[in-house]
Design a protein around this nucleic acid. Structure first.
Length: 254
DNA sequence: ATGGCGCGCGCAGCGCGA
């Protein structure tokens, strides 16, 4: 069972790349973030034609998440309980015996800004939601753009980034609190190359110089961990013309 | 040097991302 996560930074622009990638990699499940599409504009037809079922929760211009799978989708949820939030950042669904959570965690803009406070509040609500999800199904996978680089080794220049957005201690603590509910970062189950990142700024030739951050993650619950066979970042789509600034992360969860 | 690039919106240049 292959599951992937990819922040596409506009599905309208990236749809051809996504369809090509689905054909090449044929994952069982793909979680997409930053579709930036209203639901009525979602390319249902083109995705279904490539053999995938789809669920989505979108809005105009910003955010938007989608779940694509070769299997059937049930029990979709699109909100964090207790958080009245118009921003479309959550899509949870049951796929077979698996509960899959697709997340686009707020960016936070700058430490101590209003958006940063929103990010931390959002992550607090997420912990409660994940606990609740785990209590009804012990097989949970959380995929998405977490907008948190959990450790210094996930950052190309840890000293330059120390304390800054995506790397600040409160963000890292929030990520740890999520893991403490009973999750594992699947990527770190395996030996990985030095400088493994999932996002590179469009500016300053950051990708060519590998000035990146690892902020896109696949987490699995305790019960699933022993079955996980692999996890890699696929840098190939980042090399294409007009790429997303994020690369897909793919795991074989057994 | 706090911008660089790319996207959406909408038709200029700004907000936003990370």
């Amino acid at each position: 069972m292959n599951i992937a996560t990819w922040n596409v930074n506009s599905l309208r622009v990236r749809l051809p790349q996504v369809l090509d990638w689905l054909r090449d990699k044929a994952p069982d499940i793909l979680c997409i973030q930053e579709t930036k599409l209203k639901d009525e504009d979602f390319p249902v037809q083109q995705i279904e034609s490539s053999g995938y079922q789809v669920a989505f929760s979108g809005q105009k211009t910003y955010n938007g998440v989608a779940l694509l799978t070769r299997l059937s989708i049930e029990d979709v949820e699109t909100d964090l309980p207790g958080l009245d939030d118009p921003q479309r950042r959550v899509l949870s669904a049951t796929i077979g015996s698996l509960r899959v959570l697709n997340l686009y965690v707020p960016n936070g803009q700058e430490v101590d800004s209003k958006k940063y406070e929103y990010k931390l509040k959002w992550l607090e609500h997420l912990v409660d939601y994940v606990k609740e999800q785990l209590s009804s199904n012990s097989h949970v996978v959380i995929c998405g753009d977490f907008n948190v680089a959990p450790e210094d080794r996930d950052v190309h220049d840890p000293e330059a980034w120390r304390g800054r957005i995506l790397c600040s201690e409160p963000e890292r603590e929030a990520f740890k609190a999520l893991m403490a509910v009973g999750f594992h970062d699947v990527f770190r189950k395996f030996e990985q190359p030095e400088g493994a990142y999932s996002w590179w700024d469009y500016r300053a030739a950051a990708f060519r110089r590998n000035m990146g951050l690892r902020i896109d993650h696949i987490l699995c619950s305790d019960k699933l961990y022993e079955y996980v066979k692999s996890c890699e970042i696929d840098k190939e789509p980042r090399k294409l013309e007009r790429p997303s600034d994020h690369a897909p992360v793919v795991a074989d969860i057994g």
